[in-house]
């Protein structure tokens, strides 16, 4: 029995297909569908880790001012 598609992956794949489907072949779209499913799995792993309000991105932003 085929696995039930992940609704989130289906929705996100639809977004890609809607934006770029006209320039992609059926085979390419099928590969992209699998990649999106993998990305959703990766996102689940990220979301499973709890962070606190103090957990900021490591990279810093600095205000820019040109000379002088």
């Amino acid at each position: 029995m085929p696995e039930t598609p992940n609704p989130e992956a289906v929705a996100l794949f639809a977004l890609v297909a809607n934006r770029y489907g006209s320039r992609l072949t059926t085979e390419q779209l099928d590969e992209i569908r699998k990649m999106v499913e993998g990305q959703v799995e990766a996102a689940r792993a990220l979301r499973a880790v709890r962070l606190t309000n103090a957990d900021e991105p490591l990279q810093g932003f600095t205000a820019y001012r040109g000379e002088p």
Binding site: L12, R19, Y20, Q39
Partner: peptide
Amino acid sequence: YAREAILAHDYLKAVRL
């Protein structure tokens, strides 16, 4: 093109992690 489907929220979660 597949990566266009990565949500901003998930990207930022990765950056915070």
